[in-house]
Design a protein around this nucleic acid. Structure first.
Length: 597
DNA sequence: GCCGTTTTCGGCCCGACTGTTTTCAGTCG
């Protein structure tokens, strides 16, 4: 269970905006943490955690629904009491129970929970016996040797807590998927070299293709006689061994990334893979499904009493639960189990469905390759069309194109298209959305392009209303086709823009604009839930590499994975269209939009 | 605090590892 220090910012919420689902869920999680420290009924605590999980998984905004006057639908794990608290939070930003708990327990205690080795029981004991409320006080007490004397603690625990508090071990740090993948595959190869290892696979959030990865989970199948964990910790990249037993080992690499390895016997590989792939929430749901059938599911198999019904493959485990195999990208407990039971799992988009890429650069702006090189690379990536979308003149650091250079490139593309076989280059621009929402190039120039991709590259800090109006105004332009990297987030570097994304998605729907799912590893923008929300609102998603060099088309794979996590089918994605269909979309979109001139 | 195609009361996901203990509580995934 990930513990949260406070209500975090969620994908569809914003600092000064309406109360987002993540805000509500964050409050429920903090209530659960505080109740736990307060030694409340464990099942009451569980109810708050379950409710938080349910709310986070929704694809609509609760606050919006309430604002529209509609009653809250029946949600799993949310009864009369919690529904009342949701209403309270939506109308006031908080609820009385949360405030009462925060007034009786120091809020800093929740922060202590993020220290590795500290759970609610120990936090409570440290607070009651030694008055410890913060990491700093914890360090001081440990250095003075006061912790070792508490019942249940000891010298080792004291030293461990001191180390963890000082180093901040256990703090959340997630890296882009594409950065972690190569390392994980190298470790898999290393494990496969160990004599006696039959299989080794990536599991966890890496296998589910989450946009960011907090740790690397690896699963190994080997006979019990093989000491896999002892071999594994010999790997030169390992800096610290956190825990080590025969079945499990957790280490920190020199880079700081945590790696967890689980070892199982080959006969239970399938059940272990289900378990270790997660998500935790998905696991809980399928275990509840097992319970309903009078069965027990664990990483060792699906059991009726002591009889094992399935364990060797994932397919067998799901089948014995009365379910089809569920692809890892969907295993987030966002309704996939219910959909599977009804035979209504989506037919998810695949990489081979993509016919083109609608966002790419060349040397003309800040790319690294020529028009021709990019065209050949796109062809090699299996694409039939590629939009060249350089930056526009305001973005000087990226050598943005002015009118003259853009017209020059239009001619170059026409000339190149006459020579290309099986590949069509589209004439586009990644035009800057200026601070006031106007576009960086005049309409009569944009009109000459096949498509206009608009993006924010400056003034990231505008207040919510102004940022929202800026983007809405940009989308009003007659020739505006796609909003690129809508959030402008850079993972671990820049937070998403403070804007009313639901309003922007609704506007995109009305105006026939598409939204980009930018597949650059640091961007991955929009999030999966936001793509799903856009789909629900009838907005087409364009999965684009934003390629700056030939090799970047490989990023499309991650974009498709994120789209799959959003339950998108081929039909929900603009660039699965044939070139002819795409042109119809672009032309009709421009005709429907009001135009501002 | 929630929930029910055996239930409106009595359940609520499951197991490994650590450090503290002499059989287990706490934490973690």
């Amino acid at each position: 269970m990930k513990l949260t220090a406070g209500p975090p910012q969620g994908p569809l919420s914003s600092a000064q905006g309406p109360i987002g689902n993540d805000h509500i869920a964050g409050i429920f999680e903090e209530i659960a943490n505080l109740l736990e420290i307060d030694d409340a009924n464990p099942f009451r605590i569980l109810a708050y955690r379950n409710a938080a999980r349910t709310i986070r998984a929704l694809t609509f905004e609760v606050a919006e629904l309430i604002a529209s006057g509609e009653p809250l639908p029946k949600l799993r794990g949310i009864g009369v009491d919690l529904a009342g608290k949701i209403n309270e939070i939506v109308s006031s930003g908080d609820c009385a129970l949360h405030q009462r708990l925060r007034s009786t327990l120091p809020p800093g205690l929740v922060g202590l929970l993020s220290i590795a080795g500290l759970g609610p029981k120990r936090v409570k004991q440290l607070y009651h016996d030694l008055g410890i409320e913060s990491a700093q006080q914890l360090c001081r007490a440990a250095q003075q040797g006061r912790i070792r004397h508490l019942p249940g603690f000891g010298e080792k625990m004291e030293a461990r807590l001191l180390r963890a508090a000082q180093k901040g071990i256990g703090r959340d740090r997630r890296l882009p998927l594409a950065f972690v993948e190569p390392l994980a595959h190298e470790l898999i190869e290393y494990l496969r070299q160990i004599p006696g290892v039959e299989q080794a696979t990536v599991a966890g959030s890496l296998r589910r293709m989450r946009d960011t990865v907090g740790d690397i989970d690896l699963l190994v199948a080997a006979a019990p006689s093989v000491d896999v964990t002892a071999h594994f910790i010999e790997h030169p990249e390992i800096a610290t061994v956190l825990v080590k037993g025969p079945m499990r080992v957790s280490v920190l690499l020199t880079s700081g990334m945590q790696v967890d390895v689980r070892v199982v016997e080959p006969e239970v590989y399938g059940a272990a893979l289900v378990y270790f792939t997660g998500s935790k929430a998905h696991n809980i749901t399928i275990r509840q499904r097992a319970q309903k059938l009078g069965l027990k599911l664990s990483e060792y198999g699906l059991f009726r009493a002591r009889q094992c019904l399935a364990s060797s493959t994932e397919v067998a485990v799901y089948q014995a639960l009365g379910l089809p195999w569920i692809t890892p990208e969907l295993r987030e407990d966002r309704g996939e189990v219910a959909a599977a039971l009804k035979g209504r799992l989506p037919r998810l988009i695949e990489l081979s469905d993509l016919k083109g890429d609608l966002h790419a650069h060349t040397r003309a702006s800040d790319g690294g390759n020529s028009l021709e090189e990019m065209a050949f690379a796109a062809t090699a990536a299996g694409l039939e069309y590629l939009a060249i979308t350089e930056h526009s003149r305001s973005l000087r650091v990226a050598h943005g194109l002015d009118i003259e250079r853009l017209l020059e490139q239009i001619d170059q593309i026409d000339a190149l298209n006459a020579r290309l076989q099986g590949m069509t280059l589209l004439k586009g621009i990644e035009v800057d959305i200026l601070e006031d929402g106007s576009l960086d190039l005049p309409d009569d120039i944009l009109q000459r392009l096949d498509l206009v991709v608009g993006a924010v590259h400056s003034h990231f800090e505008l207040p919510l209303r102004q940022q929202t109006q800026r983007i809405l105004r940009a989308m009003d332009h007659r020739y505006f086709s796609i909003l690129a990297h809508p959030l402008c987030r850079l993972i671990n570097q820049r937070e998403p823009l403070n804007m009313d994304l639901p309003a922007i998605i609704k506007a995109a729907s009305q105006r026939g604009c598409a939204m980009e799912l930018n597949a650059q590893p640091r961007r991955m923008d929009l999030f999966d839930l936001q793509c799903q929300y856009a789909k629900d609102e009838g907005v087409l998603i364009s999965i684009n590499s934003d390629a700056h060099r030939c090799a970047d088309f490989a990023y499309l794979r991650h974009g498709v994975a994120q789209a799959r996590r959003a339950w998108l089918e081929a039909g929900d994605v603009l660039n699965t269209r044939s070139l002819a269909q795409l042109k119809v979309f672009l032309r009709d979109g421009a005709r429907e939009r009001p135009g501002r001139a």
